[in-house]
Write a protein that binds this DNA or RNA. Structure first.
Lengths: 206, 206
DNA sequence: ATTTAAATCAAACGTTTGTTTAATTTAAAC
DNA sequence: GTTTAAATTAAACAAACGTTTGATTTAAAT
């Protein structure tokens, strides 16, 4: 009938999971938000937990592409590749911050740990590509000798810290009450520039 | 009778909140873990939510001291002060990572938002001190011109990313299965050194 | 037009939830 | 030793939870 009804449920669920957590979100709430009968969730997905897994799976495929082409782009040097990834990733998080919040919450908890592997697998590709670029840069002596893994941690950690908690973001940036970091282009630029500056200083060997 | 029974409940609650989230933790579970009757929670704290608030309040006071003395330590230059804060903060998180996990989860959710102010207030002092040091360093031209707020974000973001999700940490560092980032002194040193290196490169004006 | 299967629904299922009650035990005050 | 208040308990509370049922509607297949 409605072939996108599953999708509607997944989208409603994700919003609620991001704002209230998995156990904080009830099936009745999701069904109401999606405009469907509460029985439809179990009809389509089998259970609340399987819906959650389906949501992670469905949203994560969105991020699995690209990035490898950056690695093999001969027109860019290592530092330019890092810059591209920074821009790319900030745009991803701002456009899909609810999904990233869900993922991040889930990884901090010690529940449904079987899911952690799936989530980590999405990051794996990104980490791999970044690691290769950093290693390459160090080999060519255009990068200074750094800790590759923790450099990646700093890269992602800065973005997540800046973008995944609105309260913390507002506090640190001290904007007015209706400031929204996910739509504010000025802030996005500011964040991108900062991370680039940090990474240039940290990596560059001049 | 037992004057530390409230404390026992708070400690049991915090562990469970950190692993399962607020709504994922039941009062019966906490009571069992603390070895008290389930009615004692409401008897002492009034409600589950008030217990949560009491926990945040009680644990946060632990972090409210120090740090100002670092600011006024005339024997240290600005970079040395930053180094001290890095060491200090990594030690805090590793020794109290469950508390930091709870705080971090809470800030990502859009529930109990009245609590966010209290939580943010704990960070406020730390941010203030760091900001003063960075501003001072920039004024003296020993620091390069940077974005002070986002520099703080990078500092905290790196630590949180590295220490608050065990799955992510294990994946990035690729240690064996029973590697524990909170007790592993080698990893702690490695993290401290990395953050220092990043901050030196980012801030230092030589 | 009839059949058949998928989709949708309101209602009910048995649990678990946070909280309260009312009785009992404990310990301090007098 | 009696009184009084605080602490502790088992039991019960209504509400909300995820899930299932069985009937009904919808749409495709024959």
């Amino acid at each position: 009938m409605h072939p996108d009804k599953k999708q509607t449920i997944i989208n409603a669920a994700m919003e609620l999971f991001a704002d209230k957590g998995f156990e904080g979100t009830s099936i009745r709430e999701m069904a109401a938000k999606a405009g469907v009968n509460i029985a439809m969730v179990n009809y389509y997905f089998g259970s609340k937990e399987k819906l959650f897994e389906a949501m992670v799976e469905e949203k994560s495929t969105y991020f699995r592409e690209r990035l490898t082409e950056v690695l093999n782009d001969a027109s860019k040097n290592e530092l330019q590749k890092i810059d591209t990834i920074i821009e790319d990733y900030v745009n991803r998080i701002t456009s899909q911050h609810k999904y990233h919040r869900v993922i991040h919450q889930e990884l901090m908890l010690q529940q449904r740990e079987a899911l952690h592997e799936n989530i980590i697998a999405v990051f794996a590709k990104n980490k791999e590509v970044l690691k290769k670029i950093i290693d390459q840069g160090m080999k060519k002596k255009v990068f200074r000798k750094v800790d590759p893994e923790l450099t990646i941690v700093t890269l992602f950690g800065t973005m997540h810290q800046a973008l995944l908690s609105k309260s913390m973001c507002k506090f640190l940036i001290a904007k007015d009450a209706n400031f929204d970091p996910y739509t504010d282009e000025v802030f996005k630029k500011r964040l991108i520039n900062h991370i680039k500056q940090v990474m240039h200083a940290h990596l560059s060997n001049k």
